[in-house]
Amino acid sequence: MSYFQLILTLIFSAGSGVTWQLYTLEKEASLRGIAAVDENVCWVGGSNSVLAKTTDGGSSWQYYDLVKAPDAEFRDIQAFGPDTVIVMSAGEGDKSKIFKTTDGGNTWRTVLENKFPKGFFNGIAFWNSREGILTGDPIDGKLFVMTTADAGESWQRVTNLPDVVENEYGFAASGSHITVQGDHVWIGTGGTVARIFHSADKGANWEVVNTPMLQGEPSLGIFSMAVSHSGMGLAVGGDYTDEEGMGDKNLIYSQDNGSTWNVYEGHSMPFRSAVRFVNDMILITGPSGSEYSGDNGRSWMKVNGMGFHTLDVGNNGVVWAAGSGGRIGKMKID
């Protein structure tokens, strides 16, 4: 156990030492896209075409005008250090786009634009600085999936996926219903069913796995996933129309790299929209609050402060989160 992990364990065990250091953007936005670089640099994006970056730990924020439309939704961000960043906008038709900068946001290019009238981008993830994957709502009975091998400069559609069930789709809620680890990728769905599409070879071949996550209605399903180096997987979600309602199927886990999924017996959790591993710890958040676990999800403790829509982990284990009202949090250890 590292010194950082030991301090986290002791403080969390005390039950009152971990909170969020809060910042608020000057521009109104519901923030759902985030990319944490380190304790000083973080990008956030959301509604009302708001995209912002801090380079001084949250004290000040610089804003970027990527589109002319006032109602763009920036739902996912991938940062490769402070200068190279990829931003995904979501929305039906040509509102779904991928933008890229290589000079810290001074100039931007549109590197991908959705061409399907009913298409809708949901999230992106990258295995490394060049190879990445994008997912969107189903087109012609299959999840819309594209991959890139040149850092987002060009994208190729993947078509050999299992069919979706009618009214099955992904949620562009926190940019994390898709996650990668090693050569693997997992995509969580919701709606009629809550399943996980899995590839062990960077999207070349696929399987689909059923899960016990809350499902069966348009607002139900998997909203975020994370898988550790050891093959431990967590998925969170539930019903986004009932943010504080407790449920025993809002949190599921896997111990075999996502091959099978189970619920924690006798455990209940509100709707949660984001999950991330932080060293040996797990953090989850949602609009009504955040929790931490140091024992692979068997028990949870509240993190002081309000909840968020999304979170990300930067270098040295620093955690950034973003949510409604332009609110941004950074993990503060007293």
Rank of each mutant, 00 (worst) to 15 (best):
P117A: 07
M281R: 11
R276I: 05
Y292Q: 11
T192C: 00
A151L: 10
G245R: 14
I11A: 14
G216L: 06
D94M: 12
K68D: 14
G45W: 01
G175K: 03
N48Y: 09
V180Q: 01
F12S: 13
I124W: 01
G245L: 15
P287E: 09
N48T: 11
K142V: 07
S89E: 00
S324N: 12
Y64C: 01
T24V: 14
C42H: 02
V164L: 02
H177N: 15
A172G: 10
V158L: 14
L66F: 10
N48C: 09
V44T: 01
D137K: 11
L143W: 07
P82F: 04
T55Q: 08
T241E: 15
V50L: 07
L51T: 01
T192L: 03
G141F: 04
A79T: 03
F4L: 12
N106E: 15
E217P: 00
A226R: 03
V145Y: 08
S30A: 11
E92P: 00
W108S: 08
P270E: 01
S30Q: 05
M331Q: 11
M269R: 07
W186N: 04
P162I: 07
N257V: 08
D103M: 00
G188P: 09
G45V: 03
S59A: 13
T55G: 04
D56L: 02
G182H: 05
S60I: 03
I252Q: 07
N250F: 05
V278Q: 09
I333W: 09
P212L: 10
I328M: 06
T179K: 04
Q181P: 00
N40M: 11
W320L: 05
I328D: 06
K202A: 11
P287I: 12
P138K: 02
S174W: 00
N114A: 04
H177L: 13
G123T: 15
K249E: 14
K115G: 11
H309R: 11
L251F: 13
I11L: 15
Y264M: 13
F121R: 04
D280W: 00
S89R: 10
Q62Y: 07
K27V: 05
L143R: 00
L214H: 08
F277I: 02
H229R: 13
R157T: 14
F74S: 11
I328G: 07
L25I: 04
G123R: 06
S16D: 12
T135P: 00
F99T: 04
S288E: 07
S199R: 00
S288Q: 10
T260S: 15
M225L: 15
A72Y: 04
A173N: 13
L25M: 03
M225T: 14
V318N: 06
K249G: 04
V263R: 11
K68F: 06
I133Q: 01
F126N: 06
I284L: 10
V158M: 08
E265Y: 11
S230A: 15
R32S: 01
S299N: 13
V145C: 03
E168Q: 14
C42E: 00
Y63T: 05
G104L: 08
S49A: 13
N315V: 12
F116E: 15
F144T: 02
F144C: 09
F171P: 03
P82E: 06
A79R: 00
A72M: 13
T54R: 07
V44L: 03
